[in-house]
């Protein structure tokens, strides 16, 4: 009987792994910016979910729980690494320089804007990048991003605003004070970003 139950549990979890792994990998890659670390993050996430599967399986959205684990794991890992290496004070682009992903870079050679955006994204602090990824890749509302990160909606808004301002500044389309940037920042702060 125990084995029967274990088999059912295992099958349910395997279905979860099958269905969610690719999306977790993509999110992790945008968070970690490094393929090897991406796999490690997703593997650790799946192991943590497995250890708590009895509770996770009963949740309304097990995938959202896994994503929350992953995002916070990625931020913790990046912050620990940053403390060790001092990379947060090294400025933008350090990640790309330190751990080049030549295949992705080659694909993007002809896309200047994307290349610039990628370079700046890579240099954003982990938490700031997480918010950008959750808002503009996962398309989550600010309240949900705040719940994932355990912070206030206001913090999400202000952090996203700073990250976006930095991206735009580097693109040369809106230094601080530029009317277009001000408009964008205000829209973001109000949570009324037009899609």
């Amino acid at each position: 009987m125990h084995w029967l139950r274990a088999d059912t549990t295992r099958r349910e979890f395997e279905r979860f792994v099958t269905e969610q792994t690719d999306q977790l990998l993509r999110t992790a890659y945008l968070m970690a910016w490094d393929l090897a670390e991406t796999e490690d993050l997703v593997q650790e996430t799946l192991l943590q979910v497995a250890r708590r599967w009895a509770k996770v399986a009963a949740m309304e959205h097990p995938a959202a729980y896994a994503r929350k684990l992953l995002v916070n794991l990625a931020i913790d890992t990046a912050q620990k690494r940053a403390r060790r290496s001092g990379e947060l004070t090294a400025g933008g682009g350090a990640d790309v320089t330190d751990r080049p992903d030549h295949r992705a870079e080659r694909d993007l050679d002809s896309v200047d804007t994307q290349a610039v955006l990628l370079d700046v994204l890579a240099g954003l602090p982990a938490r700031q990048r997480a918010i950008i990824v959750l808002r503009y890749w996962e398309d989550l509302p600010e309240a949900e991003v705040a719940a994932i990160l355990g912070c206030s909606t206001g913090t999400v808004k202000s952090t996203a605003s700073r990250g976006l301002a930095r991206l735009r500044e580097q693109l040369g389309h809106g230094p601080p004070g530029d009317p277009a940037l001000a408009d964008f920042t205000q829209a973001t702060t109000d949570g009324k970003v037009t899609r």
């Binding site: 993509r26 991406t38 992903d101 994307q114 890749w137």
Partner: peptide, 13 residues
């Protein structure tokens, strides 16, 4: 542009 950039990067997995 930002969404496209993120999608392009994510497709690199």
């Amino acid at each position: 542009n930002l969404r496209e950039t993120l999608a392009h990067r994510a497709a690199g997995v």
